[in-house]
């Protein structure tokens, strides 16, 4: 029987006091305990940012690579060794900004990975520039007259592209978030969990108080049907007075593993490659 202690890392945490990342870390650990897989069968992949530090703070396999590029690494790792449970911890900058193209096209690929986006609506690691999800009008040290670009809508983009599991959690509701993460891991295919996360140092608008007045759970919405794409699109578009949390959209589609038929073969990592015969290929070019 695994406990939270089994996922405890010895690395020193360097997040600010009160950072929403602590709630996400806690939720990830609780989801892993419920999943019941040992640490060496889980891989956490990240890019750059405060969210990207998370894999260091859990005892699991970790690949902390380049800014915006956790998705290509996660996809490659899953293809090479699909027995690993692959989870990406990324941020609104890393995933929707620098990694936007990977985000779009790996939703289309629908490989079985879970993507947790720490969405604090600001670049926290670099001390407070506007990210793709910063609310219009918000003033930063760089956007001194306020943000003039329209925000990126991750949930709507994911639903439009047919992602099979699109959810939104809140870092301060760790229990609800951990259940979303567990459901995302268990979903076969690409899962997106966008997590609202206050940044106590650099986002003075979207604070704990700001969220507390607005968030509600769609689970409690009588008759909410997460399987209906058009309802889901409307729900995903809701932002302002009320902000929905929970599983916004779910649909089971064909996964990359099924479509490419790699699921029928041995995982790449188990293939012997030191004795491959290329004689037949050479005959083709001769």
């Amino acid at each position: 029987m695994l406990t939270v202690q089994d996922y405890k890392s010895n690395d020193e945490i360097t997040w600010c006091p009160g950072c929403g990342d602590f709630g996400i870390l806690n939720a990830v650990k609780r989801a892993l305990v419920k999943l019941g897989k040992p640490p060496n069968e889980i891989l956490l992949v990240s890019g750059i940012g405060q969210a990207a530090k998370l894999p260091h703070y859990i005892k699991c396999n970790c690949f902390n690579g380049l800014h915006g590029r956790p998705l290509p690494v996660a996809v490659a790792a899953k293809i090479a060794n699909r027995n690993l449970t692959v989870i990406v911890t990324t941020g609104d900058g890393d995933c929707y900004g620098e990694g936007g193209n990977h985000f779009i096209h790996n939703i289309r690929r629908n490989i079985d990975i879970t993507v947790i986006v720490h969405n604090n609506q600001i670049y926290g690691l670099t001390k407070g520039q506007a990210s793709p999800t910063t609310d219009p009008g918000y003033k930063t040290k760089v956007q001194t007259d306020g943000v003039i670009l329209r925000p990126f809508h991750p949930l709507e983009v994911a639903i439009a592209l047919g992602a099979g599991f699109v959810a939104r959690g809140y870092s301060a509701d760790s229990e609800h978030l951990s259940s979303l993460i567990l459901e995302g891991i268990n979903h076969k295919g690409f899962s997106l969990i966008d997590v609202l996360q206050p940044c106590t140092s650099f986002n003075k608008l979207n604070t704990y108080e700001w969220y507390a007045k607005r968030i509600y759970k769609v689970d409690a919405d009588i008759g909410y049907n997460a399987n209906d794409k058009y309802t889901a699109m409307q729900k995903a578009n809701e932002w302002g007075e009320r902000i929905p949390l929970g599983i916004i959209y779910r649909a089971q589609g064909r996964t990359y593993e099924e479509a490419s038929r790699i699921a029928e073969k041995k995982p790449l990592v188990e293939e012997q490659i030191d004795n491959i015969d290329i004689t037949a290929i050479l005959k083709d070019v001769a």
């Binding site: 060496n40 894999p55 260091h56 699991c60 396999n61 970790c62 902390n64 380049l66 027995n83 990592v269």
Partner: peptide, 22 residues
């Protein structure tokens, strides 16, 4: 190879310790 060893593996792009932490 991750999952072949009993321990976990930390790989990192920033400067790191022998264990792989920043």
């Amino acid at each position: 190879i991750p999952s072949w060893i009993e321990d976990v593996l930390y790989a990192d792009s920033d400067e790191h310790t022998e264990e792989g932490h920043i």
